[in-house]
Amino acid sequence: MSRKINEQYIIIVGCGRLGAYLANSLSERKENSVVVIDRKDTAFQRLKTSFSGFMVEADAIESEVLKNAKIQKADVLVATTNDDNTNIMIAQIAKSLFNVNHVIARLIDPSRERVYSELGIETISPTALSAIEIERLILEKGV
């Protein structure tokens, strides 16, 4: 298999609002090949018609599913399901068992962040990010 130098193979688990948005914008760049996994096929309706990647309807906590999605070849895995613990489990499977280079987990509850950083998983918490941004806006405007 010949791969261009900049080509990235990206697996996105969970095709909710964030997962779908990310899948759409990542697949717009020609150099990326994107696979989206979700338990419900209705979730894939969120993808644009221009989405050029693959869709897999399955539960990603079954390691068989990740294997079928060729996780061994993945450069990036993003876990964006609506369950924090599922995200952390998938992230760890990707990192520890399949040695995926770059693993990011979405975290809804920021109170769990400490745990996940302890487990060596890179996390993004929309709640914390929004709070920081709102705080910045408030401070900028002043009173």
Binding site: I61, D83, N85, T86, I88, M89, V115, E118
Partner: peptide
């Protein structure tokens, strides 16, 4: 009854 929950519980207990 959630496998991921059970994993996280055990990991918090062990690692932290």
């Amino acid at each position: 009854d959630s496998d991921p929950d059970n994993l996280v519980i055990c990991q918090i207990a062990e690692k932290i």
